[in-house]
Design a protein around this nucleic acid. Sequence first.
RNA 1: GCCGCUGUAGCUCAGUGGUAGAGCGCACCCUUGGUAAGGGUGAGGUCGUGGGUUCAAAUCCCACUAGCGGCUCCA
Length: 741
Amino acid sequence: MPTITLPNGDKKSFDHPITAAQVAASIGAGLAKAAIGAKLDFGDGPALRDLSTTIDRDASIAIITAPKPNQAATPDALYLMRHSAAHVMAEAIQDVIGKDVQLAYGPPTDTGFFYDMFVPAGKKISSDHFDAINKRMAEIIKEDRPFTRYEQPGDEGLKRLKSEGNKYKVDNAERALGLPSSVYQSAKPLAATPDTSSLRHSVTPSLSFYATGAPGRNWEDLCRGPHVPSTSRIGAARVMSLASAYWHGDENSDRLIRVYGTAFPTQEQLDAYLNQLEEAKKRDHRVIGRALRLFHIDEDVGQGLILWTPNGSIIRKELQTFIASELKKQGYTEVFTPHIGRLELYKTSGHFPYYKDSQFAPIVEREDLEKLSAAGRTCAEMTNRVEAVSERLARGINERTGAQTITPDRIKPDDQLIEGFMLRPMNCPHHAKIFASSPHSYRDMPVRLAEFGTVYRWEQSGELNGMTRVRGFTQDDAHLFCTEDQVAAEVQGCLTLVKIIFATLGMKDYRVRVGLRDPDSAKYTGSAESWDKAEAACIAAAESLGVAFSKEPGEAAFYGPKIDFVVKDVIGREWQLGTVQIDYNMANRFDLSYVGPDNHPHRPVVIHRAPFGSMERFCGVLIEHFAGSFPTWLSPEQVRVLPISEKTNEYAGKVMAALRAADVRCSADLGNDRVQGKIKVAADEKIPYMLIVGPRDAENNAVSIRARGTEKDLGAMPLEQFIDGIRAEIAEKRAELGVRP
RNA sequence: GCCGCUGUAGCUCAGUGGUAGAGCGCACCCUUGGUAAGGGUGAGGUCGUGGGUUCAAAUCCCACUAGCGGCUCCA
């Protein structure tokens, strides 16, 4: 007979099996009323369950409740409500579009839920249907139909699903039963059961179904649950958007329509969320970037290629100056290298064969093309000769790495090869060549070569996104060539740099991933001992950051472990910014060495690191972080002088000149607007300081201050004092606008 | 790359088969005003590109191109 442990440690014993709802009722009527689910632990870990779950053995329980008014829902409560809302939305869609819409998979997400579905040919779902779907969802919620769970033996349930002709549900059922799929075939290994929760569920020999109402009479769906007790407990739900998704995320498989929705306990909370989305859109770096004229993308220049306009260029330049000064302190040396290199170089590095499809096409010499053309050769022949490697190179690479990237049919004698150049996808080959250009003693190590190096990658067109995903970008790159013993200290130094940058910019909302090797894979280069040491160094360095980080086995590059910094944009998408990667491969490929204390050559270890990642992406994220209101040191325009009338224009000009002489970025608004109008314009442009000057100020050699974010006149102060104040603020890279009379 | 949506003035957008519109911005004029837009006049568009249907296309159809939202990918 079950003994049930409550969250506070109290125990309750019952002499008969009991439902979670009854447990709630035994604690209090208010709890029973608010309950929408339960987290039960039968000793195998906590799992969310229906309130109707029968408890027939010892368990600990936490009742999940709907939030009180004005209270935020717990993640568990939202999970239950949204998972349930997905069913309601699916029913509504089938009512609006047609019963022949086939449902596939509908889980909750961080911000709501989605349901993937197959819409038969001839039918269509579009945003025009949203009003009707929303209306139908509201009706179903209002009807307050119970979510009724029932189970069928696996074979029986499967037979029934097969007779219904929905292969997606058959597939779901087969996977729930632990059977191989009879309907889904793919070259790719089957993904693990998609599961957005950390909750565990066991494979059972039966299948569970949920009817929204009475089984057989109302709408129902194969589902493992759990759900809220009845539809009215969902609160407020809404369909949000349409997208496409592949079945099993497999691009060679069926394309499904993914319908996104969200649900909140109350209409007010849903409205607040929608409002928040609207606000987030205003922070979008693409919107602010245009409004503040920070960057431009021009169709005629090309997709994914950023033109830094004067305002954006100031921000970038300030950031680069900032980081360059930190690099100097850490003993880096700066280098400059070209944006292209010979194909041979990237064949040596392995980039060309390995990442062929995500690079710009090679630049082939005109003479070669003409020769081939005159000889009647095809395009395929040209490609073959461009992509092939010399015997010498193939030997070299195979010897050291067993390189899988060169196939024997692509090895050609030198006179068969077509040479060419490539836009560089990475800076490391150039830096490796600089390292190799002079001999090195262990006494010189580490050698730290830094460059704001622009690289070009052929990103898929559908991936391009403002400044955050582009085809040409500048890494704040550096390569540290060090001895094995120096790896830990150098990784530590890289993280210190990242920490300084993030702290200076007030960026706190990021996460850290430590990518480790997959213990079951053999694709990695470098010795096991080196990997052990490097992984330990990465973990130790990450621990020293004082920030939560995740260890991610299998996420290492094939050439070494790495540490990535990831931030979210305003609409919740994650972007990788800074990265630190340890590389055991490159030094081999380029045959790099230094002379050790034993007077023999040794292989250096290479660390790739870019604390910002790319200037483009970093600035994009930074625009959103500050919502365009940059601290003074980064602001394209730091001060604007606003004369009250044209009578004070001359003094305004003097003020501007004095500020410019003090290295402050400043302009004066000498138009014939009234001062209210000039303030509005300057405020819209998010300029940190407005100096309003009239005859009174001119007489006293003073300025009246108005700081961004302060909706009033702060009073007047002597011009010289203002200049001293703002210079200090800029020099110290202060986050706040602090110059006051 | 794939699916869906979108492309009209510098920007934000209205215009569903019959002479191209608004607000903001811009230019000029009046106003000389002490803290989030005083007033007026004017310039500015081969309606993303190319085909097609039609007496007639910004509008309907097709293709391309670019952007947006997802998916897949990301050294």
